[in-house]
């Protein structure tokens, strides 16, 4: 089964790096990318409205950048928590940031719908850790 990834980062280069790293580690895979968190929300909302077969397109994992203009990672999670899709499909969200700011880490921990925190750059080790969780369950 191909794991479906949804990547959100305002920096196109980081998005590219993350995509490449995932493609390298997880085959086969399905990756959708957004440079704008609100577009990603729209995408997920759109999935809800479609039939259940489309629901299969729902991502298994979201890699979410914290610092983004207009809608940052935490604002995305607030919006995401209000979506119905969350109830139907277990989506694991990982927050990505280049700085392990203690306040951000604390916030990530408190956020129930957030599975973990990954330091940038995304490494093979981190990706394998994420996929490990899917293999066990």
């Amino acid at each position: 089964m191909a794991l479906k990834f949804l990547l959100i980062d305002d920096n196109a280069i980081d998005l590219f790096i993350n995509q490449k790293m995932i493609e390298k580690e997880a085959v086969p895979t399905n990756i959708i990318t957004f440079t704008n968190a609100s577009d990603a929300i729209d995408y997920l909302k759109n999935l809800e409205d479609l039939t259940s077969c489309h629901m299969r397109n729902a991502p298994d994992v979201i890699f979410l950048d914290i610092n983004m203009p207009l809608m940052n990672g935490f604002q995305f999670i607030d919006k995401f928590n209000k979506l119905n899709i969350k109830k139907e499909i277990p989506i694991k969200i990982y927050m990505l940031s280049s700085s392990a700011n203690p306040i951000d880490l604390q916030k990530v921990k408190q956020e129930k719908s957030c599975t973990g925190f990954i330091n940038k750059p995304l490494t093979s080790y981190a990706i394998n850790n994420v996929m490990e969780k899917f293999r066990t369950c």
Binding site: N11, I13, D14, I17, N18, K20, M21, I66, N67, S97, S98, S99, N101, N119, K120, P121, L122, T123
Partner: peptide
């Protein structure tokens, strides 16, 4: 954060 970001990107690119 912002000062680290370019380094992290560069590191990622280098890894690739």
């Amino acid at each position: 954060h912002d000062l680290k970001a370019p380094f992290a990107s560069a590191q990622g690119l280098l890894n690739l």
